[in-house]
């Protein structure tokens, strides 16, 4: 193989968040994901790329969707996968995250995919592990592969991201999906609007370069992309809004509200959907919905991330 292949590298050994990625790196991941998506269309949906590599899916929070998506991505790249699901009960039993990670590290995995309820848990792991850490959602902080698959889906449908009006609705305070999406979409030049009840808007959100409103119509107006975030029941119990019914009547995405968007608007949702809370069924299942595309694109994007991090570009001087 004497042809000098173009090199593709991320500057970081880990994927801890979109915050660490440059716009060029984001585009590299999306481009690589396009090639990976083609693998998923083949009769034999498997390539030998990560043969002999072990990837541990370390999940401290229940997650069917993200874990399955990572697992399929790993298997399509021929990695050996190990799922470690740890309920909060075993944490109560006394083993710390650091101890758990050191035990897993002793088995020499190439990569650890971590889902954890605490913001920054991936940073903690990255400081102690030689394995590359991929953040599959940490607390209220980031969920970078979700934002990447959202961007991939938008680009696939719209041909671009820069210049689009993207309106995001829901719990802006607790959502890691929101945080990663804001960072990614603004890095790629989208005009981002966020909308939710004032009780669920963190201070300083506008300083992240987005437009903040509590008026759904204003956010939807002329939108190319409408992204709904999941509203969790415990937010109502926490007193952030009075009832699910009132949330839906005030902020839920309905066909009527959607009329203000561009005629070719796409509707996105990271799932799982609360029908009749943040989104009407007619919208979720309607012609503008790309929700299932997001799910299938998730595998391709995660394959791209696994592939690009497997080289382990630990040292930027290695080129």
């Amino acid at each position: 193989m004497d042809a000098v292949a173009a090199a593709a590298a991320l500057s970081q050994k880990n994927l801890l968040g979109i915050a660490d990625l440059s716009p060029e790196e984001i585009v590299l991941i999306l481009d690589t994901a396009e090639a990976m998506k083609e693998v998923g269309r083949r009769a034999i949906k498997k390539v030998p790329t990560l043969r002999g590599r072990t990837v541990v899916n370390l999940f401290f929070e229940p997650s069917t969707r993200t874990r399955t998506s990572f697992e399929i991505a790993e298997k399509r790249l021929s990695a050996d996968t190990l799922n470690v699901a740890i309920g909060t009960s075993s944490v109560v039993k006394g083993e710390t995250l650091v101890d758990t990670a050191m035990n897993i590290e002793a088995m020499s995995p190439s990569m650890i995919v971590l889902r954890h309820g605490s913001s920054g848990a991936c940073h903690l792991l990255a400081r102690i592990c030689k394995a590359a850490i991929i953040n599959a959602g940490d607390g209220m902080h980031e969920h970078p592969t979700q934002a990447l698959l959202d961007a991939f889906t938008i680009r696939e449908r719209k041909g671009r991201i820069g210049g689009l009006k993207v309106a995001i609705f829901g719990d802006l305070l607790h959502s890691r999906v929101l945080r990663s999406n804001l960072l990614l979409l603004t890095k790629l030049g989208a005009e981002v609007w966020v909308c939710g009840p004032a009780t669920l808007i963190p201070p300083g959100l506008a300083r992240l370069g987005v437009r903040v409103t509590t008026r759904v119509d204003e956010a939807v107006e002329g939108a190319d992309v409408v992204m709904m975030l999941r509203i969790q029941l415990e937010r109502m119990e926490g007193g952030y809004f009075p009832s699910l019914r009132e949330y839906f009547t005030t902020f839920g995405m309905t066909e009527a509200r959607l009329k203000r968007a561009r005629p070719d608007v796409i509707i996105m949702h990271p799932g799982p959907i609360n029908r009749g809370v943040e989104i009407a069924s007619e919208v979720a299942d309607g012609p503008f919905s790309v929700i299932l595309d997001q799910v299938s694109n998730g595998v391709a994007v995660r394959m791209a991330v696994l592939y690009l991090l497997a080289g382990g570009a630990e040292d930027e001087t290695v080129a």
Partner: peptide, 13 residues
């Protein structure tokens, strides 16, 4: 502290 830094790190303020 509740402010932009906690908001960007996803820490409760």
């Amino acid at each position: 502290h509740e402010g932009p830094v906690a908001a960007s790190l996803g820490l409760r303020g």
